[in-house]
Computed example of a mutant assay.
Amino acid sequence: MSSNQIKVELTSAKKQKPDFANLPFGKIFTDHMFVMDYTEGKGWHDARIVPYQPLTLDPAAIVFHYGQTVFEGMKAYLTKENEVLLFRPDQNMKRLNRSNTRICIPQIDEEFALTALKQLVAVDRDWVPNVEGTSLYIRPFIIATEPYLGVAASKNYQFIIIMSPVGNYYAEGINPVKIAVEQQYVRAVKGGTGNAKTAGNYAASLAAQEVAEKSGYSQVLWLDGKENKYIEEVGSMNIFFKINGEVVTPELNGSILEGITRDSVIHLVKHWGLPIVEKRISINEIYKAYQDGLLEEAFGTGTAAVISPVGELYWNDEKLVINGGKIGEVSQKLYNTITGIQRGTVPDPFGWNVKVEDEEIILAI
């Protein structure tokens, strides 16, 4: 499929824009959405941009009963020159297809999906907020739509992209958050769906998150599902530590999501000449580093918050205060650099940004 095969139906009733200086996260949605259907034997077809609207699905649709769905999260940013930039969107499409493979969903054409996404952003360009710390959050997702109560992969799907102008994911912003080490629940196990971005992983995390929040913690630090001692992720983010001058992050093992911000951090740290290692690391190692005065920083990485410094870990009834509860030098530099690249205010040595051209609005109606 090509961009001129995307039909565009513009809304006749545009929504009132919110106050971009006071945006919540993920509660306000733009005027339009992208939709494309899949039918077994026909493939992906009927690509279209339409007014944002509710979906009509059969109650027996497989997505409701067996959770056959995947999604992505990415952002568009407005530069001082009034250009709209996407950050490494090709990597999101690659990861979407990796998730598709794990959940038995047909592959999408990554190049076409990116073209459709750029066209949707161009159509709703005036929804990209222009206030510091804000962005246009983009949520591509695929759902199984065949009405069938047998346990099997669906024969019909919809690929949808919706968008939402957002402020900071955490109310604390770039300020350090408090994290509780989770010892009862697990997020995922090797061989499961931990390295796929699928809804079930997030549903499984909610109980632990609720317990943590009631105790005054923003999120939980997940340990492995087999031995309950090796660190995996923090909340829905990848996790990094700086120990005695070396940056350390858990190695990808099949149960950890391959974060695009994670990969960006690794590239930047290597680019700066700092020592960095991906390895299996236990909570006991972190505790020992803390006791020895060598645990210098900890931070989560992800699309929503970019960099989220960890100021305190709660483990075995002990509070481990990291760097005096303040943001560390590497965390701050990473945040400034990545957000600067995303907004076009600092050099982009890796060619990560993709510009959305106004000409990409193609009205095939």
Rank of each mutant, 00 (worst) to 15 (best):
T145P: 03
Y148S: 14
G150F: 12
G150Q: 06
A153M: 11
A153E: 07
S154W: 04
S154P: 08
K155F: 13
N156H: 14
N156I: 10
Y157M: 04
I160C: 02
I160V: 15
I160T: 05
I162G: 04
M163L: 12
P165D: 11
Y169V: 10
I174K: 06
P176M: 13
V177W: 14
I179F: 11
A180H: 10
E182D: 12
Q183K: 15
Y185E: 04
A188W: 10
K190F: 06
K190A: 09
T193H: 06
A196Y: 05
T198M: 08
T198C: 15
Y202H: 05
Y202R: 04
S205P: 09
A208M: 01
E210C: 13
V211P: 00
Y217L: 15
Y217Q: 00
Y217W: 14
Q219V: 14
Q219W: 12
V220W: 13
E227T: 15
K229W: 03
Y230P: 02
E232C: 02
V234G: 10
V234F: 02
G235Q: 03
S236Y: 10
F240E: 01
F241V: 00
F241A: 00
K242N: 09
N244A: 04
G245K: 05
V247Y: 01
T249D: 01
T249M: 06
E251Y: 02
S255Y: 05
R262M: 07
R262L: 09
D263V: 07
D263R: 08
